[in-house]
Amino acid sequence: MYDGGKIIIGLIIFLALLTFPFYYNIGKVNAKPEPKIDTPEIQKLPVGERKCVESKEFMRGGHMQLLNEWRDSVVRDDKRIYVNSQGKKHNMSLQNECIRCHSNKKDFCDKCHNYMAVKPYCWTCHIEPKEKKS
């Protein structure tokens, strides 16, 4: 191998830079995000009816697919009413349905999205719920 030494040193520097974020964050407090579901709107509901469109587990992992499907369904097929696995009907609307309960975008949506460093652009068009500045 020509210039073997240089190549190996280069590779080491490259690997060091690549893995920098990992050891930079070692030992730092890295709390799991806990999205809040204690909005006044939810509190008002009787305990038995405090249920989302689908199960908590499903929503946690699949809300983005669900929302994607909803938007195509509403905009393209004009199907606007969703019947969930419990047989309950929901208006397929992020802005008019989801937010009715989850009126706390900052403590609900943003918490996880920031933690995961994802930036969905729902709110550039859809109007976010009014919240007290925190």
């Binding site: 699949g62 499907e69 199907k79 969703y82």
Partner: peptide, 16 residues
């Protein structure tokens, strides 16, 4: 995997 979404049903909109 996209197709694996446990899709429920759509209800016809009678008010429309």
């Amino acid at each position: 995997r996209k197709n694996a979404l446990e899709a429920s049903d759509y209800s016809p909109n009678l008010d429309a």
